[in-house]
Design a protein around this nucleic acid. Sequence first.
DNA 1: CGGGAAAAACCTGTATGACAGGTTGATGTC
DNA 2: GACATCAACCTGTCATACAGGTTTTTCCCG
Lengths: 239, 239
Amino acid sequence: MQDSKQTGDEPSPGLVSTAIQAITQHIRAEGLAPGDLLPSEAAMTRQLNVSRTVVREAFRSLSAMRLIDMSAGRRATVAKLDTGAMSMVIEHGITTQQISVQQVYDVRRTIEMRTVALAALRRTDAEAAAIASSARLMRENFRHPEIVMEHDIAFHEAIAGASHNPVFSLIVTAFSGVTRRTWVIGWRTRSTDEDQLKMIKGHEDIAEAILKGDPRLAAEHMAQHFDKSVKALLDAGIA
Amino acid sequence: MQDSKQTGDEPSPGLVSTAIQAITQHIRAEGLAPGDLLPSEAAMTRQLNVSRTVVREAFRSLSAMRLIDMSAGRRATVAKLDTGAMSMVIEHGITTQQISVQQVYDVRRTIEMRTVALAALRRTDAEAAAIASSARLMRENFRHPEIVMEHDIAFHEAIAGASHNPVFSLIVTAFSGVTRRTWVIGWRTRSTDEDQLKMIKGHEDIAEAILKGDPRLAAEHMAQHFDKSVKALLDAGIA
DNA sequence: CGGGAAAAACCTGTATGACAGGTTGATGTC
DNA sequence: GACATCAACCTGTCATACAGGTTTTTCCCG
């Protein structure tokens, strides 16, 4: 249990970990911003006095976490904030049954109760319009579950974006992958058109409350939405 | 360089991404659990018909995200849920100034208002004792900021653990790294012993509410704690 | 026959060299 | 001075080699 120094400064066994730290350290020390160039693999090889193999595995690891961007011929650059790694962790937890879908929904509910309130307070007009637009597109395509789902996901991500806190966006987006795998199950429990449209109505209510700038009302609608969604999943027997 | 252009199912960016997907896909398809063995690099090399370099970079990437565990001589195994990747993403956001400390605190507050309520409802006696113990150790060491900080962090992680939802634990733990970098700043704004002990008292109040099983009271104390912490950071000029 | 040590078979960690192809900046021509 | 061409860099992938670590097999000895 003593080896759980996640982002500590210990060079855990291996040259690659050291190299990874050297790179992140470089970003920190140089105060690099997204888009800025990192040293070339050759330069890093000389600096650390290890083989290119090691340096390359380090770069590649950071690239997999989307902390840096790599592409052929060009040096790596510092990446913009991206949910890549986070969603992989969540998905890993789900597929290895260390996390249940219900637990994810509990976290989502907690977070989105807040994002929706913040969105009501902080949204720009364009953001309010985008949110409302997603809800409208859900209704217009309600015969096509796949399309409804994508607009549903876009709806929640747009709300997180309108909270103007990128950490919320990061987390909400990280959950989108899980949603894609379970959404249709919840949809199917709404067997009649009426049930399905009622669920879409819930989204419209949220969008409207955000447009009106009423955080309390928005949060209330969001709570109802999540309570119904969780109930739908439970009815369908999702663990 | 053998040619394997049979089908056009090559995903976007390169062979390594393909290999990463193949490995995660393997975990999913075989229903592997933490600790289970993954194929060897040689086996994966044959299966994917790519060089060991590519396979290795894929394994290493997953290892960097702590989705798998690697060690010399042994095959890689499926890893237990770990916050590694998540905290790297958060730290990256902070160091590249894409996230502010205050934004992190807003997310923490949102989440911990919930974890503390869940902890009050679900905690085992042992968990309640561990939480109280962290608070007590803060008081006992209040002359040694470093030690207080570690118990503070352990306190919050213990509460997240007592929520019995690993996703909350994951997120709270991911923020611990940031806390380690800013905690002492907040502490310094509490210049007198009285102020410092008042802050520790806040933790004890939370622990007591959890012990009593009163979620509302626990959440209230947690809210106060965060409000004061954020105020302290703002006073210190943290962006 | 059984226990256990030595050997074999695997496996990962790291290094080196090679080459294809993308990118960028310098050269040099018109 | 504009522009095409080329040289210098750089990443992506492959092949090979060898030093340890780990697991399995083998086989000797009691």
